[in-house]
Structures are given as structure tokens and as C-alpha cells.
């Protein structure tokens, strides 16, 4: 496998994507909604409401499942601080796993299915670029922008959280912390890669990008389970859980890439299309 061919496919697709607002718009707006608008609305309510707010009642079971060290730390906090702490560090964490998956699903769905729709696939498949180079190039063009927007979203989110925590916690900045760093640079890329790999495999097997996107949306279900699991206190994204998730998704990634390279046969793409 030649890496220059993988990069060639990546660069070609990236040039196209940059000029396609139908793709750029959802890839940029979803992270902004999750990292700026939702947190602003959710965090500003307890911030403006002051100490009278008692939103932590809804998080009781989550708090009870937190590591004892965190519980001890929280015991010394005011009601407002506890609310902001819970929302900023725990409630929003799963959203940052949705961002790379949703952004990459738009890009990955377009990979082969988009080329089929635009009738550009034949000339690409006629080149001597190997199947694995094509697969990895298409995977990379979804992964890099998805991780770029996730990192950017995290940076924006950190600014908002820190701006609020700075005044509420007397100069303390909550982000970044170890769990969030592991989440953004450990779980997010591995989960994105797994999602992208699967979506690219699906994209090569369906007729259009919309069809691929609809099927790949199913990949969000485990993340929503995690979101509701954490909100209900059944799961807490603490360091151990995050490390376990990284380990799990590294294995899934290896499996998906192995399967993707093995299952991806260009000759099947046009056969299915015909």
C-alpha cells in the first residue's frame, strides 16, 4: 500500500468537500450547537439563577455513582457550583462523542455513495489506486475534518465553561481535565474511526449518500444509550470508564479497518449499481 495514494485520495476529496456547502454546513453547525448554544443555555440558567437553583436534584443518582474523591470535592461546593460542575463536566461529555460521529457520518456517507450519485466513481475506480488505498483515503477524509471540528468544539466549550467557572468557582477553571482530555483525544477519535469505517463500508454498498447516512445514523444509538445512562446515573464517564471505552474502540477500530480493507472490493461497487 502506498501512503501517497491514500493522501492523494484524501486531498482530492478534501478539495471537493471544502467547496460543498451542503456538506460543510452540517459538519460545522452540529458541533457549534452542541458546544456553544446548548451549553450556554444550560449553564447560564444556574449561573444567572444563583444559589437558589437546585438542579442537582435531577442528578442525584449520577452524583451517588461518582468516584468518592469527586463526591468529597462536591460536598464542599455550593448548590450553584455543584449544578454547574455536574452539567459542565458530566452531562455534556457524551455530546462530544456525538459530534465526531455525526460530522463524520455526513462526510463518510458521501465517500463512495456521493461519487456514485455524481457519476464520478467510474473514472476513480479505473485508476490503479488499490482498494485498500481507496478505502483508507476515503476513511481519512472523514476522520480528519471530524476530529478537527471535535477539537475546535472542545476548545469553544472549554472557553464557555471556564468563563463561567472562573467567576462561580473563584478563579478556578474546570477544563481541560484528564477525563475530558482522554474523552476528546482518546474516545472521540477511536469512536469516530469505527463509525467512519462502518459508514464507508455501507457507502460502498448503497446507491446514494442519503441512504448511507440513514443507515449510519444507527451508529449513534450506543452513544445515546451512554448519554441517557449517564444522565440516569447508570454509567459515569470517569477515568476508568473512559479508558475502558478507548480500549474497546481500539479493538473495534482494528476490526473495522481489517474488515473494511478485506470487504472493500471496487468491482462490487459498479456491479451493485448496475
Amino acid at each position: 500500500m502506498k501512503m501517497e495514494n491514500v493522501i492523494l485520495v484524501f486531498m482530492k476529496d478534501w478539495r471537493e468537500i471544502r467547496r460543498n456547502w451542503q456538506i460543510i454546513l452540517p459538519v460545522v453547525t452540529i458541533p457549534i450547537v452542541f458546544s456553544v448554544f446548548l451549553p450556554l443555555v444550560t449553564l447560564l440558567i444556574p449561573y444567572l439563577a444563583g444559589t437558589s437553583m437546585s438542579a442537582t436534584q435531577g442528578f442525584e443518582s449520577l452524583i451517588n455513582n461518582l468516584p468518592s474523591q469527586v463526591q468529597l470535592e462536591m460536598a464542599e461546593m455550593t448548590e450553584q457550583q455543584r449544578t454547574i460542575y455536574m452539567i459542565a463536566l458530566y452531562f455534556f461529555a457524551p455530546f462530544f462523542l456525538i459530534i465526531p460521529l455525526m460530522a463524520s457520518s455526513v462526510l463518510a456517507s458521501d465517500s463512495f455513495a456521493g461519487e456514485k450519485e455524481r457519476k464520478t466513481i467510474e473514472a476513480l475506480l479505473a485508476t490503479p489506486i488499490s482498494d485498500s488505498e481507496l478505502f483508507l483515503g476515503k476513511t481519512m477524509v472523514s476522520f480528519v475534518p471530524a476530529m478537527a471540528v471535535t477539537t475546535l468544539a472542545f476548545a469553544l466549550y472549554s472557553v464557555i465553561v471556564n468563563a463561567i467557572s472562573f467567576s462561580v468557582f473563584g478563579g478556578r477553571m474546570l477544563l481541560p481535565n484528564l477525563v475530558w482530555l482522554l474523552l476528546i483525544f482518546g474516545v472521540a477519535p477511536t469512536i469516530a474511526l469505527a463509525g467512519i469505517g462502518l459508514t464507508v463500508i455501507i457507502s460502498a454498498r448503497v446507491k446514494g449518500a442519503r441512504e448511507a447516512q440513514q443507515i449510519s445514523a444507527l451508529l449513534l444509538i450506543p452513544i445515546f444509550i451512554l448519554l441517557f445512562g449517564q444522565a440516569s446515573g447508570a454509567v459515569v464517564l470517569g477515568p476508568l470508564v473512559v479508558m475502558a471505552l478507548i480500549g474497546l474502540f481500539v479493538v473495534i477500530d482494528a476490526l473495522v479497518i481489517y474488515l473494511g480493507v478485506r470487504l472493500f472490493h471496487r468491482e462490487e461497487i459498479l456491479s451493485r449499481l448496475a
Partner: peptide
């Protein structure tokens, strides 16, 4: 191969299309 459809990347320029395939 000249395929049934021109099979060109319409968001890329003529030169960018040629360059991509030349490298490929």
C-alpha cells in the same frame, strides 16, 4: 478509459482534475 459519463469532479478545476488523475 473514457467512461460513459465524463466522470469528472465538477467542484474541481480542469487542472485539478487532470493533476489528480495524473498522480493516480
Amino acid at each position: 478509459v473514457l467512461t460513459e459519463n465524463p466522470s469528472l469532479y465538477e467542484r474541481l478545476t480542469a487542472y485539478e482534475n487532470m493533476e489528480f488523475f495524473a498522480q493516480a
